[in-house]
């Protein structure tokens, strides 16, 4: 299915939902640090990042709404857990601060490559939203990369924790680049160059930074599944939490 201007609508919807779901789950996870971060200043920083990610999710859902006529709140708060198409990576528990930092950094770099690709897309709405989000992402990357550089080799404990976090997070992060349904159409219509290409660009960015922080990239295979709605159970718990109040009176004003 495609519109007259050559934009493959259905594949585009798939893409927008995946982007929105990724940001929703990561924003939810980051907000679990509000009140619990290692120092007050980091508490404030992570709360900002959580708000930004949720804001980005809202922006993608709003764009999706223009195609589907479904409201962002219903999309985020009314779907079955098995209907989301976020990658598994963003659904895992927040872990220790090392895991949170490593996940955030790997995600922020992925945002850089995918948003830059979309900001060249022929589809104007996705181009505009990407450019806006990129402006906020620059700061996220500065923050998370700064923590990677500082915590990677600061003390024996920080190195051990950061390496353990990377061992878990890296294969999961590769799952961000799992091919989407209809991705070939997106590529042929020039929306972006495809996830395999994004992954290679991403690798080119993260490898030197991680090496510089004395962290070794593990060889484990990518943790795919999320884009095909094949999730780990952590997502079920997350979605139960996310929707628990909303579902008391669905459709009511809250």
């Amino acid at each position: 299915m495609s519109t007259s201007d050559g934009i493959p609508t259905q594949a585009l919807e798939t893409l927008l939902l995946a982007l929105a779901d990724d940001e929703l789950m990561l924003g939810h996870r980051n907000a679990e640090w509000t009140g619990y971060a290692p120092l007050i200043e980091e508490d404030i920083a992570f709360s900002n990042i959580a708000q930004d990610e949720l804001g980005h999710s809202l922006a993608w859902f709003t764009l999706y709404q223009q195609l589907s006529n479904k409201k962002p709140d219903s999309l985020a708060f009314e779907r079955e857990w098995s209907d989301y198409t976020c990658c598994r990576f963003v659904t895992y528990p927040k872990g220790d601060f090392a895991y949170t930092v490593v996940r955030q950094y790997l995600f922020d770099e992925a945002e850089q490559v995918r948003l830059r690709a979309f900001s060249l897309s022929p589809y104007e709405p996705i181009r505009d939203v990407s450019a806006k989000i990129l402006r906020e992402e620059a700061y996220h990357l500065m923050h998370s990369q700064g923590l990677i550089e500082r915590l990677g080799d600061a003390t024996e404990e920080s190195h051990r924790r950061m390496q353990a976090a990377l061992n878990d997070a890296f294969p999961q992060a590769l799952g961000m680049f799992e091919a989407l349904e209809g991705e070939d159409e997106l590529i042929s219509s020039g929306i972006f160059g495809g996830n395999a290409k994004l992954r290679d660009e991403w690798l080119g960015r993260v490898q030197p930074v991680l090496e510089n922080a004395t962290l070794l990239i593990p060889g484990a295979p990518a943790d795919f599944g999320g884009r095909k709605r094949n999730h780990v159970e952590y997502l079920q718990q997350l979605v139960d939490d996310l929707q628990s109040v909303y579902k008391i009176a669905p459709g009511a004003k809250w």
Binding site: T34, G35, I40, D43, Q51, L54, S244, W254
Partner: peptide, 30 residues
């Protein structure tokens, strides 16, 4: 004072309430 309200961040119904609550609890840290 971040804790009693912060408990509800994961459960806040709808984008606006969730964002507002994070911002509010963040202000308390501030």
């Amino acid at each position: 004072g971040q804790l009693p309200e912060g408990k509800w961040i994961p459960y806040a119904p709808g984008f606006r309430r969730k964002l507002t609550l994070i911002a509010k609890v963040q202000d308390e840290a501030g």
